[in-house]
Structure formats: C-alpha cells, structure tokens
Write a protein that binds this DNA or RNA. Structure first.
Length: 462
RNA sequence: GUAGAUAUAGCUCAGCUGGUUAGAGCGUCGGAUUGUGAUUCCGAAGGUCGUGGGUUCGAGCCCCAUUAUUUACCCCA
C-alpha cells in the first residue's frame, strides 16, 4: 500500500472550504457583471507557442509543460539529448498549462477579432499553474479572476477598475486595504529625469522594492547593479513623496512632478495627467474611499507589457502579497498578429483573498452541507413513509435529505449536528400512525408537532 | 535556482542531559439514554516516532544520507 499524496503546491478543498471559496467567487462575479463584463472560459492547455516568450525568461521556466501524447520521445535524437533541454523541449512537448488568464484572453481576441464587438469586456475565473516554489500565499495551482476590456483608450476603464476593486473588498468585509496606483509613464519619466542611466528595468525592479527594503536597501542594490551615486541621491526624493498621506492623491502627483521636473518629459507628463483624470472620474462617479487609494510612484510590477496605469492591492492587516493587480497594455495582442489594440485589466487572486479572510476571521459561511432539513426514521416502513414529504420539501426549495440507514436515532441526530443541519424531522411509527411529524430546531432544542400536510407551509414561513 | 526550519495517534502537539511498557487535548467508536444532537459521566480502539544507515550496553532524542512538508530570498496572484 502506498501513502496517498497530492502534488506539491496543490490543495484539496473540503465542503466547508468550497462554500467559502464560492462566496468569494460570487462577490467577484456579481461585481464584474454589474459593470457589464461577460464571462469567458479558455482551455486549461494552451500551445506552448502561445505561452512562451510572454512572461520573460523566468516566466518560461515556471511554465508547466505537457508531454506529447503517445511516444513523446519518438523524434528525439542522441544529438538533442547531448545539446540539452532547450533542444529537447520542442520535440517532446507542444502544450503547456495556462500561466495566467491575460495571455489566453489576448489569444482569444486575436483569433476572434472578426466576430467580437468592441470595446470587448470579459471576465474570467479559472485556475492557472506555475511551477514555483510554494510558500505563504503562493501555490502551484491557484485561481485568478480577471476582468479586462480591450478596444478603448478611455480612462473610465481605469476608474472603473478602482470602483470594482473597492466593491469587492467591501463585499468581502475587508476594510483595511490599499489600492496602489501608478503609471508606466511616470516611471519612464523618472528614469529619463535621472539621465536614462543604466537599464530601465533594473532601475524599476529596485524602485519597486522601496517599501520593502527602504532607501538603504535600494542604494545597496543599485550600486551592485552599477548605478552611480548621484542617481541614488535623487531617488531619495521619493522618500519625501512617500510621506505624503495616502489620501493626498493630487498633492502627491504634484510633488512628483516638481521633484523630478516631469513637465519636461512627454511620458512623465502624460502619466501624471492620466492619473489626475482617473482621480477626477472617480470623484464624478461618487467614489468615497479616497483614503484607500494611493498614488505610489514606486509601484512598478514585474510584467513588462504594461504601458499605462498600473494597479496593485494590499491587505494591510495581514502578512500577504498583493491580492490583486493589473494595468493597461497597448499592444498585448500584437504578438498574435493584431497590433494596436489597447486594453486594460486586472486580476484577483482568490486563494490569497481566502487566506486573508481566514487570517482575519471574516468568514461567515462555514456550512459543511447545503442541507437544511434532515428526515430521520426508524425502520423500512417509516423510512418509506417519509419519501413523499422529502419530495415536497425539495420541491419547496428546502434542501433536504433522509438519513439513508435506519440507525439509532442518536446517530442520526449526531449526523445532523456534525453537519450543521438546522432542522430535524422525526417520523417514527407513532408519528406515521397519527399523520404528524415532530420537528426539532437544533439550535434551540425546541420541538413541535405538525400534521404532515402543514410541514412545508410551516417551514416556508420561517 | 539560493538559504533555513520541521517530520511522534485521524488532527493539533508534549516527550527533560540518550535509560523499562512513548503521553495529552480534540476527534472516532461503545455505554449511561433499545425515540433525541451539542452539554455531562464512564470505557475502548488507534503509533514499526517520515525512510535508510551509523554511534551506543541502550536512540523518539546524537551523527550521516534520503524523502516530504514549510518559511525566507529571486519572482509573483
């Protein structure tokens, strides 16, 4: 006999966990749909040609590749083996598990360009897989909930993303969150204002860690990467900006504009103006939680395809990575032969949201079963006599079940208690003979007797 | 890929400088109550101490290896 196990970084979800996860999905789905996004699903497997090269070198390594069916080694030569895995891979695997939902979406848009009505708004809630080392808040199989709109440059989309994030957070009962927003143009402008020294990516990757490693950490890392001391001195200006309160959105924009002289840089100026416009649209939309919205000029995000606004959401009172992120991309479908389509989207990490809600003890849903009413019985005759009532309860929309075996009543009650079933109906020989049932409300222990014909009406009233 | 931690009953964990028969809580099962759960009382079952080697008169404890899990870094939801 072998010890059963599941692959590293994957989880089973029991009934209570699924109920709680469904609650999260429902809040997100309702929000997406209320903003006019329509559901889309794409295959678990994508061709590797679609996936590779979209997430950088590191991303390619984190892709799960799927061996070809049949004799996957039939095209492999001794030479391939000698050359190594790079030569081998395309011969043994042509498919992979999806790594995120954005690239499959881009592929879908490119393939269906002729039939889609633009702007096209879709949401997608499906699992994705990454061959990462698992750790806190990081799994190898996890669900993303994406909403994207393609085919419009309107900043209303960005504003609505903020509205949707806030609506989901509020809907889940998470109140200590921060929606961080920045703009790729602002980052570009800062880079240019620093004389475009070194690699922009190297600089931004380090700036992104500012809140984690501080000024000293940045200094150390940038020096290691070969940046000059003068750049680091200028970056210290960020420190001052970060001290402006989270709610002081416009004030922070102006501060960055002044400190880095971004008026002189086209991209930097565009970024600041667009962020101000998003802020305006939010005000006009009646958005109230500006203390939860923070312009963070150090927010960079790894994915390279963002070109406009970028978002990230943190839950402040839990030790956890971002629970949501996204941004605008001008050319996502370009790789699939459809250039010039602008889109903006974002994603919720359901598994991280779950971990946050659990850590904060915010789950109200804990049911082990949807059953609301358990019918007990004593023998074959009383069990059979319960079947018509069982059917009536179900028809009335009350999820019900008859205990399958004529076990001791004690055992049947323990079953109801363990599963949190609120009502137990006792239908023994005495009740059957009298044409009544005994109903027990588990929480209070109160029992009452009702004629069989009045049970459904009586329960529906409550 | 780099570095650390952990592995003992179904679950969460004790187990002293190495010393007879490895413990607790929860859960499970049985009984007190052959027609009543949660509460109370009584009782029972359940462990080759992750695996393989080594040191020792003697190893759950020390050493080595291995596997699994987990945390941090890189990167990310």
């Amino acid at each position: 006999m072998q010890k059963p196990s599941i692959p590293k970084g994957t989880r089973d979800f029991g009934p209570a966990q699924v109920a709680r996860r469904q609650h999260i999905f429902n809040v997100i789905r309702r929000t997406f749909e209320s903003f006019g996004y329509a559901p889309l699903e794409t295959p678990t497997l994508e061709n590797l040609s679609v996936l590779t090269g979209k997430y950088g070198d590191e991303g390619d390594q984190l892709l799960f590749k799927v061996l070809n069916s049949g004799d996957f080694a039939k095209d492999v030569t001794a030479e391939d083996l000698a050359t190594g895995s790079k030569a081998l891979l395309p011969k043994v695997a042509e498919k992979g598990l999806r790594y995120d939902l954005t690239v499959p979406f881009a592929r879908y848009v490119a393939m269906n360009r002729g039939t889609l009505t633009f702007p096209f708004k879709r949401y997608q809630m499906q699992p994705v897989w990454r061959a990462d080392r698992p750790q806190r808040g990081r799994y190898r199989e996890f669900y993303q909930c994406d909403a994207d709109v393609v085919g419009t440059d309107s900043l209303l989309c960005e504003a609505e993303i903020v509205l949707m994030i806030a609506q989901v957070m509020n809907g889940l009962g998470l109140d200590d969150f921060t929606i961080k927003i920045n703009h790729r143009g602002v980052l570009r402008g800062m880079y240019e204002a620093l004389n475009s020294e070194g690699s922009e990516t190297d600089l931004l990757v380090t700036i992104d860690k500012f809140d984690k490693i501080g000024l000293d950490g940045m200094r150390k890392e940038l020096l290691e990467k070969g940046f000059s001391e003068s750049i680091i001195v200028k970056l210290a200006l960020l420190f001052g900006v970060s001290e402006v309160g989270a709610g002081q959105f416009i004030e922070k924009l102006n501060r960055i504009r002044r400190e880095f002289g971004l008026d002189d840089y086209v991209e930097g100026d565009r970024g600041l103006r667009e962020l101000a416009e998003v802020h305006d649209l939010l005000t006009a939309s009646g958005f109230k939680q500006f203390d939860r919205l923070e312009f963070d000029p150090t927010l960079a995000r790894g994915l390279s395809y963002y070109t406009g606004c970028i978002f990230e959401v943190k839950i402040n009172n839990v030790q956890m990575g971002s629970v949501s992120g996204g941004g605008r991309y001008d050319n996502l479908t370009g790789a699939f032969g459809l250039p010039g389509v602008s889109g903006v989207g974002f994603s919720f990490g359901v598994d991280r949201l779950y971990d946050c809600l659990e850590a904060l003890d915010l789950f109200t849903v804990t049911a082990e079963t949807p059953t609301r009413c358990l019918l007990t019985h004593f023998d074959a005759a009383s069990g059979r006599a319960a079947l018509p009532l069982l059917a009536q309860l179900r028809a009335a929309g009350i999820p019900s079940e008859l205990y399958p075996d004529a076990s001791k009543l004690q055992k049947q009650f323990k079953y109801a208690d363990a599963k949190g079933i609120p009502l137990v109906i006792i239908m023994g020989p005495e009740e059957v003979a009298a044409g009544v049932v005994k109903i027990k409300i588990m929480q209070t222990g109160v029992e009452r007797v009702l004629p069989v014909g009045e049970v459904v009406a009586g329960l529906t009233l409550e």
